[in-house]
Design a protein around this nucleic acid. Sequence first.
DNA 1: TCTAGTGTGTAGCGACTGCTACGCGCGCTT
DNA 2: AAGCGCGCGTAGCAGTCGCTACACACTAGA
Lengths: 186, 186
Amino acid sequence: MADPPKKPPMTKDSLLPLLTAHVLAHGLGGASLRPLAKAAGTSDRMLIYHFGTKEALIVDLLGHIAKVYAAALDAAMGGERAATRADVVARILAHGDAPAMQPFMRLWWEIVAGAARDLPGYQLAAQAMMAQLLGWLEGQMPAGDPDPAGGARYLMTVIEGTAMLTAVGHGDTASQGLLAGGLLPS
Amino acid sequence: MADPPKKPPMTKDSLLPLLTAHVLAHGLGGASLRPLAKAAGTSDRMLIYHFGTKEALIVDLLGHIAKVYAAALDAAMGGERAATRADVVARILAHGDAPAMQPFMRLWWEIVAGAARDLPGYQLAAQAMMAQLLGWLEGQMPAGDPDPAGGARYLMTVIEGTAMLTAVGHGDTASQGLLAGGLLPS
DNA sequence: TCTAGTGTGTAGCGACTGCTACGCGCGCTT
DNA sequence: AAGCGCGCGTAGCAGTCGCTACACACTAGA
């Protein structure tokens, strides 16, 4: 008996990954219900039914994205400790430059812009992701580092500055700065 | 003879400051022609007439904003040189934290997000503003600094990282990082 | 078996989007 | 004086926005 194509239940949790894929590809700012619904295989009607409001959908989606980011960081967390701070910086910059990370990076700046404008959910998601990155950095600090906690915050500031300059096409400026600051292995 | 209220000619150059004020207040992403026109005292019809296209309007507007930013930096450029790199950082962070600069900062992250998505005009405007800031920083480096060019790039990276962390509510993380990096006067 | 609630599809609402067609008055040239 | 193009206002186009009204199928409980 060819079982009839019983459709799996549609829940927030089954929708969020599909929605996440869509915003990673097309951005968060210009996202509207009908394209989102199409990407998730439903109708705008159903998105409103499950999330109540577009705003609530975005908030849930940002929370989900933060979790996806945390999982991605966890997955990249393996490997032995770096020997120097410069090695930590080099490692994480390489991770951020990977092609697989670039849709996420593009999305990240939209999240920052939303957080700067106090859009609901943006600050929370951004803070969660930064806290995750900070924890990861603390765990990656070299073994004999004199100030792992402060050093991790220092490196995070430098890394985020580099990411921003790279996003606007001033990546070489950042590289020269890191070199001058002794934060890149020559 | 009370001269009749002859309306001044409407040109791109007379419109751009008004449009700039509007996007500083309301953001760049959600800007649509009719509210923009209202802020400039015209109609959407006239904006299209003068700029041809909304996209062209945005490009022109970004160019104008970059010039406004350059002028603001020039105005803040006065004063004697700082004595140490930490003083340079403190000075520029204080400048960025000023309430008058915050509408601009909010706009800035939208520009970064647009540049990361390769929207027309965004990269150009962002690069112009960063180049301006870099020049300003080079001129502000302490007199006896061993590597003014590299040091300015280093400070710029740190400063932009701090700005981003501040935008998402992780400003104290950045402060602690700057302290640990010896870039804040204790 | 009747009923109530839950999930889903279709159709459509009013508001808004970027942009255009058309007409009108003004100052310039010939 | 006759035309002509430029600056501008009014009105409207087709399309999209978030959201809703309504009908229907299905399952669970009484």
